[in-house]
Computed example of a mutant assay.
Amino acid sequence: MAAALDDLDRNILALLQTDATLPLDEIARRLGASKTPVWNRIRKMRDAGVIRGEVAILDPDKLGLESCFFVLIRTSQHDAEWLARFLEAVRARPEVMEAHRLAGDIDYILKVRVANARAYDAFYRALIKEVSIFNVTSTLSMEEIKNTTALPLETVSGMG
């Protein structure tokens, strides 16, 4: 169930999505509010799980992780045991940045970040050693056009 947010909540979240290191004084100043109500709202949104955490966003290229692969997976097995092994394998692999179960012809898509094709091949070999997969199609991203962690808050309803 979605949390009920008003304009001040959305504005606080918008600032935090841009820079979570902003001091409370600066957030309150930018929003024309006093510190205590802003702090109370931030605390309330943390307690409600709206704010799940605060992290540093690293540059993969500067860390030598220049290759981003999207891995499309089809399975012929849909039993609980296979699913448990698959989820464990995917969650244990640090190269997997995102994993989604899909509707349609493809069962899962993974976003995998590695140094190069050789590193991707090592990832692929390790994955298929851990779990049986019917079909894997991998595509290399040639250019990242947009990458954001910011959610579209202007579309969030005030209703909860």
Rank of each mutant, 00 (worst) to 15 (best):
P37Q: 05
G64K: 00
K62N: 14
R10S: 08
D25P: 09
A33E: 15
L16M: 05
I42N: 06
M45S: 13
D7F: 07
L8G: 04
I51D: 08
L63K: 04
T36W: 06
D61Y: 12
R43W: 14
L58G: 09
R52I: 09
D59V: 01
R30G: 14
R41F: 09
V55Q: 11
G53Y: 06
I57Q: 11
W39I: 00
I27R: 03
R10F: 10
R52Q: 15
D19Y: 07
F69N: 02
R43A: 13
R43P: 09
S34E: 15
R41N: 05
E54C: 08
R52F: 08
L13Y: 00
L15E: 10
R10H: 10
D59Q: 04
T36L: 11
T21W: 09
P37F: 13
A28E: 05
A14F: 07
W39V: 04
R30A: 14
L65G: 04
I27T: 02
A48W: 13
E66G: 12
R41T: 03
A33L: 07
A33P: 10
A20D: 14
K44Q: 11
D25M: 08
D25H: 12
E26R: 02
W39H: 12
C68M: 13
S34C: 11
P60E: 00
V50H: 00
I42L: 11
L16N: 02
L65V: 03
G32H: 06
K44Y: 11
R30F: 13
D25C: 09
C68W: 08
I12H: 05
P37L: 07
L65Y: 06
I51R: 00
D6Y: 06
A20F: 12
L8S: 03
C68I: 10
D9E: 11
K44M: 11
L22M: 13
C68L: 13
R10D: 12
A56L: 14
R46W: 12
T21H: 10
V38H: 00
D47L: 09
A28H: 03
A14G: 13
P37G: 09
I27H: 01
D19H: 06
I27C: 08
L22H: 08
V38Y: 00
E66T: 11
L8N: 00
L24Y: 10
P37D: 10
I27M: 05
D25W: 08
A28K: 02
E54V: 06
L65H: 01
P23Q: 04
P23V: 02
E54I: 03
V38R: 02
N40G: 14
S34Y: 11
K62E: 14
P60F: 03
L63A: 12
A48Y: 10
G32S: 08
L13A: 05
D59P: 05
L65W: 04
V50N: 01
G53H: 07
K44C: 09
D47S: 09
S34Q: 12
V50R: 02
G64P: 06
D61C: 08
T18M: 13
T36Y: 07
D47M: 07
L58A: 13
I51W: 05
E54R: 03
L13R: 01
I51T: 05
R30C: 13
S67T: 04
G53R: 01
L58S: 13
G64E: 06
I51C: 07
I27E: 03
R29V: 06
G53V: 00
